[in-house]
Design a binder for these strands. Structure first.
Length: 407
RNA sequence: GGCGGCUUGGCCAAGGGGUAAGGCAACGGCCUGCAAAGCCGUUAUUCUCCGGUUCAAAUCCGGAAGCCGCCUCCA
């Protein structure tokens, strides 16, 4: 029912449903890739016209909405004394600042449309007020009533929707039911590029696809969680790279734990979990929560350093608490979900593909370097390492030989 | 014009009356043939600026500057 979709439909000849299905599919695919769980119910406005019409009917019956000659139904903001309470706006002030020509049919310039008559060439549904379609806002009140009842606990959305959309939802629902619509509003800040808001709606989803070409979904999640959800976050290559390095560090720690024989016992919870929980319970302070993970990683690395990666019974238990907690956290944040070997293998595969490098070539060079090192021919050894370094490949000499990775 | 938000080390970013988390980067040390990784240490007497309240302010109040968002029949 979005004007943009109707416009696109008229341009391409595809019907609206085909167009929206396409975007919904794309959205699903990208959310799946980002480890975003599917919602239990995803109601579509076009499948709830009946509920929407009923809802508008209730508003009219209560004297909160009115029909205007020509087919429009408007919500009367003067009939709802709390109008503006969410956004902190005063209707008087806004009336003075109105920038657009006022529709003379409205009782108050800020009244908003609940049902609008169909123009030629537009999709429409039959209604008591003539053929037409719902206005924006009403579907949220009607559908949330259908699935969640007269009021519910948490409503999310972007900051830009506070006014008018969420304000209008409150007006519609509270005008009908006379009780609190939503207990907690969660309004997220935007992802900016160069400190400017990203292009709206569909444009953002294209971005995700592009970012995924370079960074894994876990890097994207970690980037988003590195700042509080209410604040805007600026997308830059530098910050993505930094986050990616941080994620490597955490996975490297997990790998180290496994090599040291640390076991997971899913029921035990340690200090990390307490810190994490405290942070998340404080208005989803994900940045603080991530910091607690890094703190635990440092602590764990230190314990492993101190015991030369052969922890005794006691240390082993401490480490298993950390491992457990990280695993529990990973299920909440949708990160650190892979086993470390797969994580680093995937990273390697991607590097190999992106740089068009033959891994056997690298292995061969490493062999040559090993031989040179054995013969104390260190200049040759360093030469090999520099050669690989130029290709973004870092060598790490460990007790079990040399491993390599992409920087 | 109205409303809301933001400004914390080189960069990113928590904290929101009790004396500055965490990440990245840099430098020094341990380790290493040298590195890398990891660890240890150093890097903001100070939180955009100016006033005020307080025993105590990055945190509260007032003012200034800069940046961002919203104010449409856009979902």
């Amino acid at each position: 029912m979005d004007d943009k979709i109707i416009k696109k439909s008229n341009e391409t000849g595809e019907d609206c449903k085909t167009i929206t299905e396409k975007y919904i599919d794309e959205f699903h695919n990208e959310m799946d890739t980002l480890n975003v769980l599917r919602p239990t119910v995803e109601p579509k406005a076009t499948e709830h016209i009946r509920h929407i019409i009923d809802f508008i009917g209730m508003l009219i019956d209560k004297g909160k909405a009115y029909y205007v000659e020509g087919g429009d139904v408007y919500f009367s903001i003067d009939s709802f004394k709390d109008y503006g309470k969410l956004s902190g706006r005063n209707p008087e002030d806004m009336r003075a600042g109105a920038r657009i020509a006022v529709d003379t049919n409205k009782k108050n310039p800020l009244d908003f449309v609940l049902w609008k008559p169909a123009k030629p060439g537009e999709p429409f549904w039959e209604s008591p007020w003539g053929d037409g379609r719902p206005g924006w806002h009403i579907e949220c009140s009607a559908m949330s009533y259908e699935y969640l009842g007269q009021g519910f606990d948490i409503h999310g959305g972007g900051k830009d929707l506070i006014f008018p959309h969420h304000e209008n939802e409150i007006a519609q629902s509270e005008a009908v039911f006379g009780r609190q619509f939503v207990k907690y509003w969660i309004h997220n800040g935007f992802v900016d590029i160069n400190n400017e808001k990203m292009s709206k709606s569909l444009g953002n989803f294209t971005m995700i696809k592009e970012v995924l070409e370079t960074y894994s979904s876990e890097v994207i999640r970690m980037f988003l969680l590195s700042k509080h959800y209410r604040s805007p976050i600026d997308y830059t290559e530098d910050s993505m790279r930094e986050v990616s390095i941080g994620l490597d560090r955490i996975y490297a720690f997990l790998e180290r734990l496994e090599k040291a024989g640390v076991q997971i016992d899913g029921f035990k919870r340690g200090n990390l979990w307490n810190d994490f929980e405290r942070a998340m319970n404080d208005d989803f302070n994900s940045a603080r929560a991530l910091a607690s993970v890094f703190e635990a990683v440092k602590k764990g690395n230190k314990l492993l350093d101190d015991t030369s990666d052969i922890p005794d019974e006691n240390i082993l238990e401490t480490l298993s608490f950390i491992y457990n907690d990280i695993k529990a956290i990973s299920n909440i944040l949708g990160m650190f979900l892979l086993d470390p070997q797969s994580y680093f293998r995937a990273k390697k595969d991607k590097g190999v593909a992106d740089m068009a490098i033959d891994p056997s070539e690298i292995e061969d060079l490493i062999l040559q370097r090993a031989k040179a090192r054995k013969n104390k021919n260190f200049s040759r050894a360093d030469e090999v390492r520099d050669l690989l370094c130029a290709k973004n490949i870092v060598l790490e000499d460990g007790p079990e030989g040399t491993t390599w990775r992409f920087e």
